[in-house]
Amino acid sequence: MNNENLNWHFVQDSDGIEDEDIIRFDLDDKTFCIYKLQDGFYATDGICTHEAVHLEDGLVMDDEIECPMHQGIFNIKSGKALSPPACDDLKTYPVKVEDNKIYIQIS
């Protein structure tokens, strides 16, 4: 890991993670979702902006995550809320994979 930037946090090894898998990552009092899409890993806040439920149990379809409670849909790459009842966007975070290890950048 590049220690020059301390905002990168190790999540887990990337081996065995399949497309459309969701990894939950907790740091202090914050929680995040890391998604494996066809073209790589992406991360958003872990909690749906509509109601307090974790998106780790949601369904990934192409580049979208659907909330498991009320089917609000967000674009994983942009965080944009696409379908009601979700109306506020999700915050997104950079993710990188080095030496088969996944890192998320949380500033």
Partner: peptide
């Protein structure tokens, strides 16, 4: 419990 059935219901 909240969040635990939605995925399978959608599928």
């Amino acid at each position: 419990v909240k969040g635990k059935i939605g995925r399978d219901i959608k599928l």
